Amino acid sequence: MGSTLRQRTRPGPSRSARAAGPLALALLAAAVTGGCTGAADGEAAAVWNVAPDQSLGADSTTFTALVHRVGCNNGVTGDVNDPTIDVDKDQVVITFTVSSGEPSSASCPGNAPVAHEVELPEALGDRRLVDGECAPIGPSEDAHCDPDGVRHTPEEPAARTNQS
Rank of each mutant, 00 (worst) to 15 (best):
R6V: 01
D131W: 06
L27P: 12
T97W: 06
C72R: 04
E119L: 03
P121M: 09
G21L: 08
A31Y: 09
T37G: 07
I94T: 05
I137D: 09
I85S: 09
P154W: 10
F63A: 09
N162R: 14
E117L: 07
G34I: 08
P157S: 04
P109C: 02
V92N: 00
I137L: 11
H116K: 07
A19V: 09
P103T: 07
M1L: 06
G110H: 00
Q7E: 15
T161I: 13
A39V: 03
E155I: 00
A159D: 12
S60L: 10
D79K: 13
A30E: 14
A115P: 12
L129R: 06
I85R: 11
N49C: 03
D41S: 06
L66E: 06
D131Q: 07
G132A: 03
A115R: 12
A30F: 12
A40H: 03
H116S: 04
P136F: 02
D53C: 02
R10E: 15
V130Y: 14
R127W: 12
S14E: 13
P109F: 04
P121H: 10
H152T: 00
V114Y: 02
I137W: 11
T97C: 03
D131A: 02
H144P: 04
A159F: 11
A158C: 07
G110I: 01
P154Q: 09
K89M: 11
A46D: 03
A159T: 02
A58F: 12
A19T: 11
A24V: 10
L27S: 10
V32S: 15
V32F: 13
R6W: 07
E122V: 05
D59M: 10
L124T: 00
H152C: 09
S14G: 10
G138H: 01
H144I: 11
L27M: 14
P13L: 12
C108K: 01
R10L: 15
T84L: 14
V150G: 08
R151H: 06
I94N: 05
Q7R: 11
N81T: 02
T33Y: 14
S100K: 08
